[in-house]
Design a protein around this nucleic acid. Sequence first.
DNA 1: CATGAATGAGTCTTCATTCAT
DNA 2: AATGAATGAAGACTCATTCAT
Lengths: 195, 195, 195, 195
Amino acid sequence: MSASRTKAAGRPRSAEKDAAILQAALQLLATQGYTRMSLSQVAEVARVSKSTIHLRWKTKADLVTAALAAVRMVEAPPAGGNTRADLVAILDDFAATVQRVRGMALIGTCLAEEAHTPELLALLRERTVLPRRDLLRTVLEQACCRGEIRPEGDLEAAVSALLGPFYADYMAGQGGRAGWAEEAVDLVLAGLRPA
Amino acid sequence: MSASRTKAAGRPRSAEKDAAILQAALQLLATQGYTRMSLSQVAEVARVSKSTIHLRWKTKADLVTAALAAVRMVEAPPAGGNTRADLVAILDDFAATVQRVRGMALIGTCLAEEAHTPELLALLRERTVLPRRDLLRTVLEQACCRGEIRPEGDLEAAVSALLGPFYADYMAGQGGRAGWAEEAVDLVLAGLRPA
Amino acid sequence: MSASRTKAAGRPRSAEKDAAILQAALQLLATQGYTRMSLSQVAEVARVSKSTIHLRWKTKADLVTAALAAVRMVEAPPAGGNTRADLVAILDDFAATVQRVRGMALIGTCLAEEAHTPELLALLRERTVLPRRDLLRTVLEQACCRGEIRPEGDLEAAVSALLGPFYADYMAGQGGRAGWAEEAVDLVLAGLRPA
Amino acid sequence: MSASRTKAAGRPRSAEKDAAILQAALQLLATQGYTRMSLSQVAEVARVSKSTIHLRWKTKADLVTAALAAVRMVEAPPAGGNTRADLVAILDDFAATVQRVRGMALIGTCLAEEAHTPELLALLRERTVLPRRDLLRTVLEQACCRGEIRPEGDLEAAVSALLGPFYADYMAGQGGRAGWAEEAVDLVLAGLRPA
DNA sequence: CATGAATGAGTCTTCATTCAT
DNA sequence: AATGAATGAAGACTCATTCAT
């Protein structure tokens, strides 16, 4: 009885190909959008045959879903106990990540496909949006405990006020406006300052 | 040059068809997205033949561009001189419009196609985003004049702080959160309250 | 108002292409069978693009159905009033037709597809099998009236006895056995001879 | 030649798998037809991997051929010495067998593939059609010896007259017409009654 | 031996676009 | 002007077969 008791029969599936396919899919999803992205392109970019993709994921939607599910939140910026600095760090990291992975195009695809393939937006939320919001909320809760801000009924509005300007700026064509994070944080902290 | 003659020869193009096509295109753009929307669908919805579309716009991109260009901001909510109420009215109208025309899907399509057809996002900005921001900025400037808020270098950040929560909420899956407009306005006004 | 009141707008559909496609489909159906036959082949044989086929028939099954529906019974051999000669003539014509159009392969395809696409066998029956049986039954009924054969409850069994040997011979590998028609007719007439 | 050694080296091939594969192939051949039947399906039904099939038969055609070759005539109904009863018994058994194994679909497949893979029809003939005809012919010969029917040149026509109505009925959509066997036998015996 | 991975060819179908009427 | 026919390119997906474990 070797250690490989559960070893699967036959040739094992190549982990490199798994990764290459998912990465290619994610990249093409951001650059082409869901509908325009073709499995041929994915196969070509991943240096793999189309059938190899179909062997792993039954349909295009399955593949894209898997690619989005594989997206992992980058590790949270370390919290230092300084409310303002911590919030700014999280927001800056957010902006940097979005830019790095062509995030707005990816978001756009998920929004555009919401009626047709709602899983996409759902996954994006679960994997990237909500975890980031959790980080921000945690910092705010601590600030609350320390009496730095007024205890509000819930902090959702504050979180949206922190992240929102990023989207609004992008829509206005002012994508990477310098100092946006600081301004957003200052506005929220000022608005919530204890009486 | 006969092209400059006041009256074109032959049968004039039907204006009704122009409108029907553009409207159908816009609707399908929102419900299907750019790539998924087909000219056959547009033709069917507009009760027109595919060739009639091509007669007016050379390519699919041209048609979609024209459809977006035809989008007009709905009339602004009347300003009443009460800063808080005016801002809330504008934001509520914004949210209502987005919901009515499946705006987030339309925005998603334009974001998704940004790399391929940047005109789409540019037009959306010009026709809908910037006009709305102008309304908000005007109200803020008046409030500034009346000394209700601190004069900032520019008010862009404030405008983004007003609109942003809408986007952030949508991304978080809290699309129509009640009272979002009031909360955003109050936060901004509190943050900008004169010392 | 011209005579062409109901003239369809636009370019008229080419009747030659209609015919070429249907004929190609029928030929390939007989030589390749339903599943093996591809629309590419049909397009190639008919000297037409694949899309031209899809313009007329939505799916492969639709095309094949139309092709089978277009099969027309060859005109009946003239009845001369001589029962034996008339029956033999019909059977000989039957055998000749089957051979000419690779009928057994066509029949085979319809039988093989019965579970999947029952319309095929149904059409084959309606267009070729049943009309031929009607001819035979009519001749038998006249013979009955003239007292040449015993009046049976119904003549279906007799008709099957006339046609059956053809199929049985084919299955035995004795496809075109000479004199099969005469033998079958003689057997039936002898079996039904009035007491 | 080591190939002629009584015992092959290495693990022997599983006989159960052989049987399971052939049976699955035969079943799917009848239900799906040759072209539609896929090796994946066979593998799945036989609870075996695709490669295990290819290990035994090089191609799909080989497998199907082997499956048909494995078909054995079920044992003949016991002959009791009564010509009419014996013939009817054979025909009834024939009809029952065809129905049990979806025989007409199988026959259809072999007919449809005749141009492409003539071995199929050849095997079907050799294994099922001709043995059955032999049974019938033997009974007829004995009847001949006993003087119950006229001695004909050969009895092939009579055999086809016995089996034929079954096929003809099926083609007419009267598949299992009650009493067909008796009627066919009576007709033939009447037609061949000694003068 | 037996298995699962990997692949290239091929399937039906859809689409944006150009032609003929 | 307006329509419907015609088409080439491309898309997702399936399959028989060969390879590596």
